[in-house]
Amino acid sequence: NSASGPLPDGWEQAMTQDGEIYYINHKNKTTSWLDPRLDPRFAMNQR
């Protein structure tokens, strides 16, 4: 992992069949290639 600590509440790390890691936001029912622990847009929304 490139980030430390647990994923934010509602997020899950998953892997594609090709072995690529992505992240699932169960609250918004969206997915992201960016780790939410590193995404400044997500961090701003949590303050």
Results as ranks from 00 to 15, higher is better:
Asn1Leu: 00
Asn1Asp: 06
Asn1Thr: 10
Ser2Glu: 13
Ser2Asp: 13
Ser2Asn: 15
Ala3Ile: 15
Ala3His: 08
Ala3Arg: 10
Ala3Cys: 11
Ser4Val: 08
Ser4Cys: 09
Ser4His: 05
Ser4Tyr: 09
Ser4Leu: 09
Ser4Arg: 10
Ser4Ile: 08
Ser4Pro: 04
Gly5Phe: 12
Gly5Thr: 10
Gly5Asn: 11
Gly5Arg: 07
Gly5Ala: 10
Gly5Tyr: 07
Pro6Met: 10
Pro6Asn: 13
Pro6Val: 11
Leu7Phe: 14
Leu7Ile: 08
Leu7Tyr: 14
Leu7Thr: 06
Leu7Ser: 05
Pro8Lys: 09
Pro8Asn: 09
Pro8Arg: 06
Pro8Tyr: 05
Asp9Met: 07
Asp9Pro: 06
Asp9Gly: 09
Asp9Cys: 07
Gly10Glu: 08
Gly10Pro: 05
Gly10Arg: 05
Gly10Val: 03
Gly10Met: 07
Gly10Asn: 11
Gly10Ala: 04
Trp11Thr: 02
Trp11Cys: 03
Trp11Ser: 01
Glu12Met: 06
Glu12Pro: 00
Glu12Ser: 08
Gln13His: 05
Gln13Cys: 07
Gln13Asp: 06
Gln13Glu: 13
Gln13Tyr: 06
Ala14Phe: 03
Ala14Leu: 07
Ala14Met: 12
Ala14Lys: 10
Ala14Gln: 10
Ala14Tyr: 04
Met15His: 11
Met15Thr: 15
Met15Ala: 08
Thr16Tyr: 02
Thr16Gln: 02
Thr16Phe: 02
Thr16Arg: 03
Thr16Lys: 02
Gln17Val: 10
Gln17Phe: 07
Gln17Ala: 13
Gln17Asn: 13
Gln17Lys: 13
Asp18Cys: 09
Asp18Ile: 08
Asp18Gln: 11
Asp18Arg: 08
Asp18His: 11
Gly19Ala: 04
Glu20Asp: 09
Glu20Cys: 04
Glu20Trp: 02
Glu20Lys: 06
Ile21Gly: 05
Ile21Cys: 08
Ile21Asn: 08
Ile21Asp: 05
Ile21Ser: 07
Tyr22Gln: 02
Tyr22Trp: 02
Tyr22Lys: 01
Tyr23Gln: 00
Tyr23Met: 00
Tyr23Glu: 00
Tyr23Ser: 00
Ile24Thr: 04
Ile24Lys: 04
Ile24Tyr: 02
Ile24Asn: 03
Asn25Gly: 02
Asn25Tyr: 04
Asn25Pro: 00
Asn25Ser: 11
His26Trp: 06
His26Ala: 10
His26Asp: 10
His26Thr: 06
His26Pro: 09
Lys27Met: 09
Lys27Cys: 12
Lys27Pro: 07
Lys27Arg: 11
Asn28Pro: 01
Asn28Cys: 14
Asn28His: 07
Lys29Val: 03
Lys29Asp: 03
Lys29Glu: 06
Lys29Tyr: 04
Thr30Ile: 15
Thr30Leu: 15
Thr30Tyr: 07
Thr31Glu: 00
Thr31Gln: 01
Thr31Leu: 01
Thr31Asp: 00
Ser32Val: 01
Ser32Glu: 02
Ser32Phe: 00
Trp33Phe: 12
Trp33Tyr: 07
Trp33Cys: 02
Trp33Asp: 02
Trp33Lys: 02
Leu34Trp: 05
Asp35Val: 03
Pro36Asn: 00
Pro36Leu: 02
Pro36Ala: 00
Pro36Gly: 00
Arg37Gln: 05
Arg37Met: 03
Leu38Phe: 11
Leu38Val: 14
Leu38Glu: 13
Asp39Lys: 13
Asp39Arg: 08
Pro40Arg: 12
Pro40Ser: 14
Arg41Ser: 14
Arg41Lys: 12
Arg41Asn: 14
Arg41Thr: 15
Phe42Leu: 12
Phe42Ser: 13
Phe42Thr: 13
Phe42His: 11
Ala43Ile: 08
Ala43Arg: 12
Ala43Val: 12
Ala43Trp: 11
Ala43Thr: 13
Met44Glu: 04
Met44Lys: 11
Asn45His: 09
Asn45Lys: 06
Asn45Cys: 09
Gln46Met: 10
Arg47Pro: 05
Arg47Tyr: 09
Arg47Glu: 09
